[in-house]
């Protein structure tokens, strides 16, 4: 698909396979946020280049990856903030159905359907940060309607404020609140089914 990054050489002892995989992860993350391949590519290149200049400080691949992703998050946030000063591109203009559907978890009176009522999650907090859990989390995130996934990522992963999200996507505060509510309901339901009920 994409050319492998020019990051060969001894980057904190990381293997080429590790670097290629990391670059794919970074591109996916940046594309989802920026909606533009070119800008995503640039952000990833800059994050990698920045990391290379200081790579000697990093022991081991895990520390390197954590750090590069942190740089990338800042780059993405910078790009999104800069865009707010430009006129909204046509592609970013509000589409009629901005918010995506409300997950079918409530009955007509707005009460939980029996099958959809949130059960207690018994796992200790630490289990929610394991590789296995995060893979399920990733899959559930990808299943959200696009706008819900995007806004959720901006808010909870990139940690932008509501105002910044509104400005970036041309949404009202209410839109963003509605979208985040729906995204959280859908994500919660997906995690319940695919993680917490597994083997129950």
């Amino acid at each position: 698909m994409d050319q492998p990054a020019r990051v060969e050489g001894d980057v904190a002892g990381a293997t080429p396979a590790f670097l290629a995989q990391m670059r794919d992860d970074m591109l996916r993350f940046a594309r989802l946020q920026l909606g533009s391949d070119d800008e995503a590519e640039d952000a990833v290149q800059e994050a990698l280049a920045g990391a290379l200049r200081n790579s000697a400080d990093f022991r081991g691949e895990a520390a390197l990856k954590t750090w590069i992703i942190a740089i990338l998050k800042n780059k993405v946030a910078d790009i999104l903030r800069k865009r707010q000063r430009l006129p909204l591109a046509a592609s970013q203009m509000a589409a009629p159905d901005q918010e995506g559907p409300l997950p079918a978890v409530f009955d007509q009176r707005g009460m939980w359907h029996d099958a959809a009522r949130p059960a207690r999650w018994s796992d200790p907090e630490a289990d929610l940060h394991t590789t296995q859990f995060l893979a399920v989390f990733d899959a559930c995130l990808n299943r959200l309607p696009p706008q819900q996934g995007r806004v959720f990522m901006m808010r909870e992963v990139v940690e932008l404020g509501t105002e910044e999200i509104c400005a970036e996507l041309g949404l009202t505060t209410t839109n963003v609140h509605v979208i985040l509510h729906r995204a959280r309901l859908a994500l919660r339901a997906c995690l319940q089914i695919n993680w917490f009920q597994e083997g129950a």
Binding site: F18, Q21, M22, D25, E61, A62, K65, T66, I69, A70, K73, E125, L128, H129, T130, T131, F133, L134, F137, D138, L141, F152, M153, E156, V157, V158, E159
Partner: peptide, 15 residues
């Protein structure tokens, strides 16, 4: 909390 961990990718399979 999981979203933050997801962003940091700390527990990646490459560890």
């Amino acid at each position: 909390g999981a979203a933050k961990a997801f962003g940091a990718q700390q527990s990646s399979s490459d560890e």
